[in-house]
């Protein structure tokens, strides 16, 4: 599916006509959409679909220490320089979501046991 970016801030706006990855599709069609009453839905696919979302924020000391570590790692002079360079060059060098990955990787995926090994291996 073609992904088009446009406008002055194209680095920071990813526009897609339809969901571009499995995680987005799962959000859309497993959690949302018309549900038909159990009585009418006489049979449903016999699978267990599991979605893992590691990014949910939980207020805990562990979370705080992780934040503290991230702030300590921060190179403030570098952050400013990098931000300006990106604006000037109009390119962040990877053109994708890579930079938005934070302290916890945005790992959300859906799988049904054997499907996962087979297809993930092929697609990365």
């Amino acid at each position: 599916m073609a992904i088009a970016t446009h406008g002055t801030a194209s680095n920071y706006l990813q526009r897609a006509p339809s969901p571009s990855g499995l995680a987005d599709v799962v959000d859309l069609i497993l959690d949302k959409g018309l549900v038909i009453d159990a009585y009418v839905r006489i049979a449903v696919i016999g699978i267990e679909l599991i979605t893992i979302d590691a990014r949910i924020v939980i207020a805990s000391v562990d979370t705080y220490l992780r934040f503290a570590e991230a702030v300590n790692r921060l190179d403030l002079t570098q952050t400013e320089a990098a931000g300006l360079k990106e604006l000037r060059d109009g390119s962040d060098g990877n053109g994708g979501d890579g930079k938005s990955k934070g302290m916890v990787e945005g790992a959300k995926e859906a799988f049904s046991s054997d499907d996962r090994k087979k297809e993930d291996a092929g697609r990365g």
Partner: peptide, 26 residues
């Protein structure tokens, strides 16, 4: 969306998908 991406360039990354069927509203 273009305007917002410009306003927040460098600090917020947007992913904008559609047009889609009304999944969230039916």
């Amino acid at each position: 969306m273009d305007e917002l991406a410009g306003t927040h360039a460098g600090r917020i990354r947007f992913k904008y998908v559609g047009p889609l069927a009304p999944h969230s509203f039916v």
